[in-house]
């Protein structure tokens, strides 16, 4: 028996048990949607990205190495999907600011300041655009720490880099983003 239930279910799914796949979806959907929300600030988009991730898992389950935790494997696929969505959205500007659900998830509707909401809505597309100016490494570090809000030491472990390297990369990413955001503000 494996240490974690998800990896056990994944191995059963590799063997052809579709019921195990259903249980995986039911168990892990909420954390995946939450992660998607951190990247998109939109519940519906987060749900769609999560659905795409499950389809990818279905297609690639033969590539999963049972020696490694299934959860890590799925989160990596999902994170790549989220980043890819950010890049595409920044290029196509397909999500209007009105669609952004910037109200904090745990605050009831009508509880937040409308002008603050508007400010958030305006800020988010600019940030998404500015992120396209980061290097791949900077974008990944920034996404882990600032968007997913993973503890920095944990993020360094997940990304397979030294803690000091992660901090340096994060500080460079922030500086660069601030520079791009300032430029974008000047253009407005």
């Amino acid at each position: 028996m494996r240490d974690d239930i998800e990896s056990q279910l994944a191995v059963e799914f590799q063997g052809g048990d579709r019921g195990s796949f259903k249980r995986l979806v039911e168990t892990m959907t909420r954390p995946l949607i939450a992660m998607g929300y951190r990247y998109t600030r939109n519940w519906e988009t987060a749900r769609d990205i999560c659905q795409d991730t499950w389809i990818k898992v279905y297609e690639r389950i033969h590539q999963y190495d049972p020696a490694r935790p299934f959860k890590t494997w799925v989160l990596t696929i999902h994170r790549n999907h989220c980043l890819s969505h950010l890049r595409k959205a920044a290029v196509r500007r397909e999500i209007s600011t009105a669609e952004l659900d910037c109200r904090p998830a745990d605050s009831p509707a009508g509880d937040s300041d409308p002008s603050e909401d508007l400010h958030r809505r305006e800020f988010w597309p600019r940030l998404r655009k500015a992120m396209t100016g980061l290097t791949e490494s900077q974008r990944r570090v920034f996404a882990h720490v600032e968007l997913e809000q993973i503890d920095q030491e944990e993020a360094a472990r997940v990304l397979g880099m030294k803690y000091s390297t992660l901090r340096t990369t994060l500080h460079q990413a922030r500086k660069r983003l601030a520079g791009i955001l300032l430029k974008l503000e000047d253009e407005r």
Binding site: R30, I33, A34, E44, R47, E146, L147, Q149
Partner: peptide
């Protein structure tokens, strides 16, 4: 940026997910 990006803790975020999204996945 930090203020805009700040989100509730993970457990609060999880409970904020619309129920039908998880149920119909």
């Amino acid at each position: 940026m930090r203020r805009h990006l700040s989100l509730p803790r993970q457990d609060a975020l999880l409970s904020g997910i619309p129920d039908e999204y998880a149920a119909t996945m």
